[in-house]
């Protein structure tokens, strides 16, 4: 029933399929007929069983090589297009799924998180897993990368990601436990803690970057976490050209993370044009339009123009960056960044 195909037809069909495959985590290589398989590993975590299976598949179908992508995905290069189905099946037997490329929600990246990383305040691994399970593969105008950093050290670069979450903590003094030892003041690198008139450490809210080092050092449980949450950055990317993310909110709760992602994807789909990265959409449409969309979810945790004037945001963001942002408008009064009203 099938007609005999010419070599040319077959080649075209293979190339068309390769383009289609890219959407599914299969990357055509320079070498004709060879593809790289990108494996899904939210937060860069995978079980030893999956790791062994990835290695076994790389030996059997590739050249025994595995490349760790810059976004934590193990990739198997040099797989024959003809072996694709077998590779996918054998990976799946061990529970190893395939990641994605192209214009869609990508696998979330994360640091080790508070489960075992001593610096982290948030469970970045769980959030990377959950957000990937919920949003992975959803189509967006251009690629959409999400990451979770457990603290302001920001190893996963939330300030250079389409949607980045950075773990933060608000310290609180328990005066009756404080021995006035001044360790907390000594370790604060932001000059945000000083001895007050009452001989107790006092926090400068405009300077504190919510790293929590004072909590970690205190031997007497006198400095404790009042609340933890996420600083949210939007519109960042490295690449051609790079775009630093806008800081958008602070102390967003774990429970609000999904709604923030969902709202951001919806906003991006509504306003972004095909092939336009989120940061460029924000520049073109206006940051206040996005802030307005997010206001319903995070409320007063949304950052304002006044917040960005504080020393802490100048310290958290790349040097000099705050001065390059358009003025954030006053959403409550409907005022726009250019001074007009909505």
């Amino acid at each position: 029933m099938t007609s005999k195909k010419t070599n040319g037809d077959r080649k075209d069909a293979i190339e068309a399929r390769a383009e289609e495959l890219k959407a599914g985590g299969f990357i055509p290589q320079r070498q004709k007929g060879k593809i790289t398989i990108r494996c899904k590993a939210p937060g860069g975590r995978l079980t030893s069983e999956r790791l062994e299976r990835v290695a076994a598949v790389a030996r059997k179908y590739g050249r025994g090589l595995v490349h760790l992508s810059v976004r934590q995905s193990p990739e198997i290069p040099y797989v024959d297009l003809a072996d694709l189905d077998a590779v996918v099946r054998e990976l799946a037997e061990a529970g190893q799924e395939i990641a994605s490329c192209g214009k869609r929600f990508r696998v979330a990246t994360a640091c080790g998180g508070c489960e075992y990383n001593p610096n982290a305040w948030t469970d970045t691994q769980r959030l990377a897993l959950e957000s990937t399970a919920r949003f992975f593969g959803q189509d967006t105008p251009h690629k959409f990368k999400t990451c979770f950093a457990g603290c302001v050290r920001d190893c996963v670069k939330s300030r250079m990601t389409d949607l980045g979450f950075q773990g933060i903590v608000e310290p609180q003094l328990v005066p009756e436990n404080c021995t006035q030892c001044t360790l907390c003041i000594s370790v604060c690198e932001d000059d945000a803690l000083r001895m007050g008139d009452d001989d107790l450490p006092a926090r400068d809210l405009d300077r504190c970057i919510s790293c929590g080092d004072c909590i970690k050092v205190c031997p007497f449980d006198a400095m404790v976490p009042k609340r933890t949450g996420h600083a949210v950055f939007v519109g960042g990317t490295h690449g051609k050209p790079p775009h630093a993310a806008y800081p958008i909110a602070e102390f967003v709760t774990d429970e609000q993370v999904s709604a923030v992602i969902e709202t951001t994807i919806e906003w991006y789909r509504l306003h972004g044009t095909r092939g336009e990265r989120l940061g460029n959409t924000l520049d073109r449409v206006g940051i206040d339009c996005y802030r307005r969309a997010l206001h319903g979810i995070v409320g007063n945790d949304l950052l304002t123009a006044a917040d960005l004037e504080k020393p802490k945001w100048r310290r958290i963001l790349y040097r000099g960056l705050v001065d390059t942002f358009p003025a954030y408008g006053n959403l409550a009064s409907g005022e726009q960044s250019d001074g007009t009203t909505a």
Binding site: C181, T182, S186, K216, P219
Partner: peptide
Amino acid sequence: IRSVPRSVKAEGHKIVEVTPLDGGFRL
């Protein structure tokens, strides 16, 4: 002073007294 007290706590030992010195601390 940023790292040692944290490590002491993490190991489960108890810091019972901290005294500021000139340019350092006594634990």
